[in-house]
């Protein structure tokens, strides 16, 4: 995937830092510019996805031939009755996490800016992947993505998200025993597939 941060992403980076139309100091301006450079230098964006048949029952959403249950009402409502969905994973790599950890020690003010660049990039990469999937799905497109932990979909489902798309082997996304992802700047999600 050909993707990188540019200065056009500045407003998004600032939004994650909580800025609202505030005047920027020279240091922030410089830091953002440099953090965009660092992000592009260390990022290693990887994506993986798979198309599944889905169905529903009283407890929630059922995925694939085996009918693995994603419990809860929120996802059922979100998918709005579609019979097909994509599950996917996106990460910007472990080198980025290391860069943030290092900067949080030497210049924390800049470290949080870099952290925000990472969030911006992984979201941007997820958007780009959805665009790519839409291209492959000819005549269909993917809806708004939904991740473990949203609404009443438990975080514990993360395990199934990772294994169903083989995200550890194919994209290097691993889970620790509390279902947190590593690299930290990773996204897994499900999105319904609808007629374009």
């Amino acid at each position: 995937m050909n993707i990188e941060l540019t200065i056009d992403d500045k407003s998004e980076i600032l939004r994650y830092l909580g800025f609202r139309n505030n005047e920027l100091t020279k240091k922030i301006e410089d830091d953002i510019e440099d953090c965009i450079r660092i992000t592009n230098e260390v990022m290693d964006v990887r994506t993986v996805w798979r198309l599944f048949d889905i169905s529903y029952n009283d407890e929630g959403t059922l995925v694939g031939d085996m009918g693995v249950l994603l419990p809860g009402k929120s996802l059922v409502k979100h998918l709005d009755g579609t019979k097909k969905a994509v599950m996917f994973g996106v990460t910007i790599g472990s080198a980025f996490d290391e860069a943030v950890n290092k900067l949080m020690i030497s210049d924390p003010g800049k470290g949080v800016v870099l952290n925000s660049c990472g969030i911006t990039l992984v979201e941007k990469a997820a958007d780009a992947l959805q665009f790519e999937m839409d291209e492959s799905l000819k005549g269909y497109k993917t809806g708004v993505r939904f991740s473990p932990g949203y609404g009443d979909l438990p975080l514990d489902c993360q395990d199934f998200f990772i294994s169903s798309i083989d995200a550890t082997r194919r994209a290097g996304i691993r889970l620790n025993r509390n279902m947190l992802m590593n690299p930290v700047k990773s996204v897994t999600a499900i999105a319904g597939v609808y007629k374009a």
Binding site: K27, G109, G111, V112
Partner: peptide, 14 residues
């Protein structure tokens, strides 16, 4: 007051 943000708070601290 929302006039300064986290990066600035931390840079000032540094």
């Amino acid at each position: 007051k929302g006039m300064l943000f986290l990066p600035q708070l931390l840079s000032s601290a540094s």
